[in-house]
């Protein structure tokens, strides 16, 4: 396949209230939990050892916070384009992501503004599961590309 073209969301085209394209991963197998623990060098036993997680009072092994942040960063960057940068991502983790869950990252634009010459877009963001139960939720600010264009 050819290299993807550089694409950027234009500030002028962003509408308050619009939902950005969602991204789903799952169902998450035990193998994926082990791979993610390895790929993040996060060997906290609650992320890969079922007996340990349950002894902590949790229902099963649970996904780490860095993975959740990575998913938020992925959904924001996929929408905003290659020359944008997620300036701030803030979220609270509620229910744990456990084995066999399918997780979807979503976002809705709540505002847009120009500050200090930067084109900023604010969003509500959240992760939900296959049953629509929210896992984590929060907010984000993305700096769109200057003039909405490539280099």
């Amino acid at each position: 396949m050819p290299l993807p073209a550089v694409r950027d969301t234009r500030y002028e085209d962003v509408k308050v209230g619009e939902e950005i394209p969602s991204i789903s991963i799952g169902p998450l197998s035990h193998t994926q939990f082990l791979f993610i623990a390895s790929s993040h060098h996060d060997w906290y036993p609650g992320h890969h050892d079922v007996e340990y997680a349950r002894a902590q009072g949790l229902p099963d092994i649970f996904m780490n916070a860095t993975w959740q942040h990575g998913l938020f960063q992925r959904v924001l960057c996929a929408w905003a384009g290659a020359n944008a940068i997620p300036r701030r991502i803030k979220y609270r983790m509620g229910r744990p992501v456990v084995r066999y869950d399918t997780v979807t990252a979503r976002g809705v634009v709540t505002g847009k503004r120009i500050e200090g010459g930067e084109h900023l877009v604010d969003l509500d963001i959240w992760l939900d599961k296959q049953d629509a139960e929210k896992v984590s939720s929060g907010s984000a600010t993305v700096v769109l590309a200057p003039h909405g264009g490539a280099k």
């Binding site: 290299l3 960057c77 490539a150």
Partner: peptide
């Protein structure tokens, strides 16, 4: 790979050179 993130900024120097980064 753990996030299954296809963002070419993370995978291709050639793509990155076409951006402001």
């Amino acid at each position: 790979e753990g996030i299954q993130d296809p963002n070419p900024l993370y995978w291709s120097e050639e793509f990155g050179r076409q951006t402001r980064w």
